[in-house]
Write a protein that binds this DNA or RNA. Structure first.
Lengths: 345, 345
DNA sequence: ATGAAAGCGCTAACAG
DNA sequence: CTGTTAGCGCTTTCAT
């Protein structure tokens, strides 16, 4: 009875690419195939089995482009990394990349695909609108505000499904997930001072808003405690950092005995330069980093640092975005950083 | 005459979302709008200008989903990272992530978008076919063969536009771009021995084919030189590595005086454990890493390592893929690694 | 140089 | 439970 069903006379079935091809072979209508394959409506068990069998045998996959056009949703979340300041730095930045990894995990788990776009705002004014309006994504996650705070604000009012990793500013309109950088800065400065530092320096770029907030937090504490603090500008890519740090160290010398590095990467470079100069850490100079990257635990001595919970950040970004996808106008999420005391203080 | 053109009685024009909406406003047919916006055919300059103006004013973006369905190409390249062994390790692996960053650069430059998919083959047998058959990508780049060599081979014959980062095996069918790991292993062992090491150890997981090749290269040299070598299995995620290395070091003690680490990450952890034990590097034990990540230059002492040219790798992957997209059945590309001598040998 | 018309492959009412 | 029908928004002949 079922012997001859699929034994059509022509032994060259011509690859079965569309749901309609499959429908013909199965002897049903395209609609039924669609239903069967999406496991959705009530389809006769036998019919479904037959369809699934044929699909498997022929390695058939429904065309997502068509499906998504029809359903008016893409199942794709766009992730944009704006490269504002230090172009090469950010994309290879360990912190962002780790965040990206976790984001990929979270999104996959929720059944979304991730479209990654690296953008250079200076070369492409229109990056955010282009991404949003492309019709290729249901929502957008922006990793890092970079120097694009204002542009993001502009877009936020008209486009709900967007969440940004970055710093939270009083009264801002876009939904952001990020660490409390100011608090992190405070923790760092407090620890430095508690460990006996009497003159502080912030090592890093103070342009990006996150770093500015870290510095501001540290300064607030320092001023309250009557401890001087200065900012020592530095690029963040390891290759350039080292030399710049070296230059700073020459100039400041015995003066500064507490360094707050904008990121662990900077802290590591700093640690190395200090060692080159035979400055003892933490005896002569104390250091606190930021991020708690894996390397922080591998330096000698191991780095005291302010930990950002990357996994929680990724989870927050995705959760909020999914809620916004349903029309919810969510609040921002500010995560508390934690001081991880190791041996550089 | 043109005063009242767009002054339709209803002041609520209802956002103009489709090419047809725009066509109505511009008083032309959808076809013309399509042509004008794609800058393609000969369209009257005035008509084009008018259409472009309206598009800009209303922030109109053509729906890519529809466009791509119609044109039967997506403009998207899929990038899959199979997480074979050490699930958490690989996605956050600095090397792969840096490669991903460069890939994003290259693809963007060539006008492609990048769809990232993190894949756990153990949980999803079908990952590669699903990605390829999804209709969402024009081609696929796989970052790392992991333990999926065979599955990739299976697919390779029937699917041209795929390029893989990984190790090259004599006679394999899939197109691969990667460093000559065996040669890298040789370079490492040669350097270790030339620096006076008399008993070698390979630190790392020898399961993944890339690492197996590194070990094989080192062993070939060691055997030729009559120097003993052993493999010391280790996971690759920094947190687990440290303890495992510590265990190894306790057992091997003064015996081994030359360590070839499977990656820089492992080397860094190893360096730290040695320092904890007051073993002097390179006096008592010499170390060579692999990758030349930025940290390699930040350790104390700076790490001698085998450099992989990540940027060249990314460029190679994209170039080959684009050629395959045109139907070219390209050869694999094996890149020569370079020994970077610093101070751990 | 432009309009009309026919789909790309799939889904979702709406009838049976 | 299944077939029929009407598009999703865009591109591309084919005429004009």
């Amino acid at each position: 009875m079922s012997e001859s069903e699929t034994q059509s006379p022509d032994k060259t079935p011509g690859r079965i690419r569309t749901i309609t091809d499959l429908a013909k072979v199965a002897g049903v209508s395209p609609g039924t195939v669609s239903r069967a394959l999406s496991g959705n409506s009530l389809v006769n068990a036998k019919t479904r089995e037959k369809i699934e069998l044929i699909a498997r045998e022929h390695g058939f996959r429904p065309n997502q482009m068509a499906s998504r056009l029809r359903r008016q949703k893409t199942g794709v979340i766009g992730v944009a990394i704006p490269l504002g300041h230090d172009v090469r730095q950010q994309i290879s930045d360990t912190f962002f990349m780790t965040l990206l990894g976790y984001l990929a995990d979270e999104l996959t788990e929720k059944g979304y695909d991730l479209m990654l776009r690296r953008v250079i705002p200076a070369q492409d004014e229109d990056w955010l609108d282009r991404f949003i309006g492309s019709g290729m994504v249901d929502g957008v996650i922006v990793i890092g505000q970079s120097d694009q705070f204002d542009r993001i604000e502009d877009v936020a009012d008209g486009y709900l499904p967007m969440v940004v990793w970055g710093n939270h500013q009083e009264g801002q309109r876009h939904c952001v997930v990020g660490s409390d950088n100011r608090l992190g800065g405070k923790l760092a400065a407090e620890k430095l001072i508690a460990s006996g530092a009497t003159s502080l320096a912030f090592l890093g770029d103070t342009q990006p808003i996150e770093f500015a907030a870290r510095f501001a937090g540290a300064r607030e504490v320092a001023e309250k405690m009557g401890v001087p603090i200065r900012a020592l500008p530095t690029h963040l890519s390891p290759d350039r950092t080292s030399k710049e740090i070296a230059d700073h160290l020459i100039r400041i010398d015995a003066n500064v005995d507490g360094i707050f590095a904008a990121t662990d990467t900077v802290a590591v470079a700093c640690l190395k330069e200090l060692r080159n100069r035979d400055v003892e850490v933490p005896e002569q100079v104390k250091i606190v980093g930021f991020d708690d990257l894996p390397i922080a635990n591998q330096t000698v001595p191991p780095l005291t640092t302010v930990r950002q919970d990357i996994a929680a950040g990724a989870k927050g970004l995705v959760d909020l975005l999914l809620r916004r996808l349903t029309g919810d106008d969510t609040e921002s999420l500010v995560l508390p950083p934690h001081l991880i005391v190791r041996e550089t203080t």
